[in-house]
């Protein structure tokens, strides 16, 4: 799910070839999981079908020469996705990271991403805290497990927020 928004978001800064797109994705988000070409093309095909991207053909032949560009509908979709906090759950790292980097790349306010996410996390944490304090020991242990994980996420968020300037300098060419 987040891969298609990531690819879409990368197109916001200008049209790219499929190969170029894979390279940029791998550089920015890939780390230990680089994309297959096939994944890029199948995603692009789906986005094309949904009208979120369009193809600019260039003289030459072969699939490599296809250049993809984002449509207005695509931009709206990316904005909506970035601004929407994720449902708080453990191991959100990759998606949140993608959102923050994309926000920076596309000139949106990354702090807002973090604030929205924090608000969402805290909402859940409040509920867990309430349940914990009203419940028995089993509830307490279960809730605490979730709370500590959520807290870890939030801490990472705070850390990221504190490092946004450095991150921006790195991801923005």
């Amino acid at each position: 799910m987040s891969v298609s928004f990531a690819l879409l978001g990368l197109l916001e800064n200008g049209p790219r070839h499929g190969y170029d797109l894979k390279r940029t994705y791998d550089d920015t988000f890939g780390r230990d999981r680089s994309l297959h070409y096939g994944q890029v093309y199948s995603t692009m095909a789906r986005l094309l079908k949904n009208g979120l991207v369009e193809v600019e053909s260039e003289p030459g032949d072969g699939p490599d020469r296809k250049r993809y560009a984002i449509t207005h509908a695509g931009i709206t979709d990316v904005a909506e996705w970035i601004g929407r906090p994720e449902k708080p759950e453990p191991y959100l790292q990759s998606t949140l990271y993608t959102k923050v980097v994309l926000a920076l790349l596309t000139g949106r306010d990354a702090n807002e991403v973090l604030d929205a996410q924090r608000a969402e996390h805290l909402r859940l944490m409040r509920e867990l805290t309430r349940r914990k304090n009203d419940g028995d020991l089993a509830d307490e242990l279960i809730c605490d497990h979730a709370l500590f994980h959520l807290e870890a996420d939030l801490r990472w968020l705070e850390l990221t927020a504190a490092r946004l300037d450095r991150l921006a300098a790195r991801v923005r060419p």
Binding site: R118, H121, L122, M125, L128, T129, L150, E151, L154
Partner: peptide, 17 residues
């Protein structure tokens, strides 16, 4: 507080930056 677990005891939060 800077601890989310402590902040979770609140009704709402305000972020200072």
């Amino acid at each position: 507080t800077h601890e989310a677990r402590v902040a979770a005891y609140s009704d709402r939060e305000a972020v200072v930056r």
